[in-house]
Amino acid sequence: MSDTTASLGRKIGTAGDLQSVVRTMKAVAASSIGQYERAVHALDDYYRTVQLGLVACLREMNPPAAPAQTKRSPTGAIAAVVFGSDQGLVGQFNDLMADFVVKTLAELPGQKTVWPVGERIRARLGETELVLGDGFVLPGSIGAITPLVGQILIEVEALREKEANAPVYVFYNSPHAGEIYTPTFQRLLPLDAVWQRESTAMAWPTKNLPEVMNAGEATLLAFVREYLFVSLFRACAESLASENASRLAAMQRAEKNIEELLEDLNRSFHRLRQSGIDEELFDVISGFEALTGG
C-alpha cells in the first residue's frame, strides 16, 4: 500500500521523537565519559604513590614478605573478574570482551571461574563453556564503584582462603588512542617473585632513598591492599568510560541514520503533497474547461 501524506506525517513525527531520544542519550553518554575519565586521571598519581610505597617496602625486606611464586597444578583454580555492561546500545562492547576472555583464558591451564560485572556480559559469557561465579551489579556512578570493589575483594579473599596461590585476573575495556576502546587484562594475584622483581626494578624518583619505619611487613600488606583496590577501581572506571564511549558512537551512528531517514521521508512527503496539489489543480482546470466548453 502506497503511503499517504497522513501516514508520512506520522512517520516523520515518530522519527523526530526518536531523534530527540537519541540526542538525549548522546548528551548523557558524553557527560558520563567525562566523569569516568577524570576519575581515572585522578587515580594516576595515587596509583603511582602506591607503587612507590611497594617498591620501598620490598627493597627493605630481605627476603621479601610478599608471597613467592609456587608451582600450581594444571587443575588449580583461576578466577577472572570481567567488566561488561548492564545496558544495551553499546555496539560490540560485550561481544568483543567475551571473545577476548574466552581466547585469553583458553591459553591458561586449570579450572576457570568467571565473575561477571554487568548483566549483558553475564548473558554473553553464559553462552560459552566458562563456569560463571557470582555476578556483580555494575555501578551507575563514580560513588558506587567503591562498594563494588569491596564486594569483589571479599570474593577474592574467600577464594584465596581455599587456594592461596590461585591466580586472579581482571578483564576490562580500556579507552585507547585512535580507537574507542581496547580489551585488556591484568593479573592481580598472586604477587609472586616475578611481580616483586618488576616492582623493585622501578626507579625511585629522587636521590633520597626511602626508609620504612617500624612494622615493615604490616606496611607492605597495607600497600598491597591499596594496590588491589586501586587496580580494580581503575579497571571499573576505564570500563565505564569505554562503555559510554561505545554508546556515544552508537548514538552518533543512529542520529546520522535518523537524519537520512527524515530527509527521505520529508522528500517523499513534499513530493506526495505536491502531487496531490497538482491533481487538484488539474481537476479544477478540467472542470472549468468543461463548464466553459473550452
Rank of each mutant, 00 (worst) to 15 (best):
I33W: 01
L232Y: 04
V40P: 02
N208L: 11
S2V: 13
I78H: 00
A158T: 11
R72W: 05
N165K: 08
E107Q: 09
P205K: 04
A158D: 11
T113M: 15
S2C: 11
V28E: 14
W115I: 12
Q51I: 09
D3H: 06
Q274N: 15
Q35V: 15
A158R: 08
P190H: 00
T70D: 13
H41N: 10
D95Q: 13
I33Q: 01
F83E: 04
V82L: 03
Q196Y: 00
I12T: 01
E289G: 09
G76D: 07
Q252F: 04
Y181C: 12
R273Q: 15
D192G: 06
M61G: 03
V55L: 03
G126S: 10
E198V: 11
Q196W: 01
A215Y: 12
T14Q: 09
G293L: 05
N173H: 15
G34E: 13
A177E: 15
S141C: 02
R271C: 08
Q35W: 13
H270I: 08
K112D: 07
E107T: 12
T14P: 00
E198D: 15
A241T: 01
W204D: 04
L191H: 06
R197V: 10
E179K: 09
Q186F: 07
V102A: 10
W195E: 13
F185Q: 15
R72N: 09
M1D: 14
A65M: 12
S141R: 04
G287D: 15
V50K: 00
E107P: 06
S7T: 13
A235W: 01
T5P: 00
V101H: 03
L220I: 05
Y36E: 01
A144D: 10
A30T: 13
M25Y: 07
N214M: 11
T292V: 14
V168A: 05
S141A: 07
E217I: 07
A235T: 04
T128L: 06
L108W: 10
S73A: 13
W195P: 01
L52I: 03
I180C: 05
E163F: 04
A42Y: 14
M61N: 05
L52V: 03
E119Y: 05
A201F: 08
V212E: 08
V22I: 06
S2P: 11
G16V: 05
A15S: 09
K11M: 01
A164R: 13
F83A: 11
I33D: 01
R247S: 14
K162A: 14
A254M: 08
Q252G: 10
P147E: 00
S7P: 00
K103Q: 12
M25K: 10
A56L: 01
D134T: 07
W204Y: 02
S199P: 10
L228T: 07
F288M: 15
E161H: 10
F185A: 12
K26N: 12
K207T: 11
N94W: 00
D192L: 01
S7F: 02
A201M: 13
M25E: 12
V55I: 03
L89Y: 12
Q252E: 14
F136Q: 02
E238H: 08
P139D: 04
K11R: 13
Y36P: 04
V102Q: 11
L240H: 00
R122D: 08
E226V: 08
N244R: 08
S85A: 12
M25R: 09
R253H: 11
W115D: 09
S85P: 01
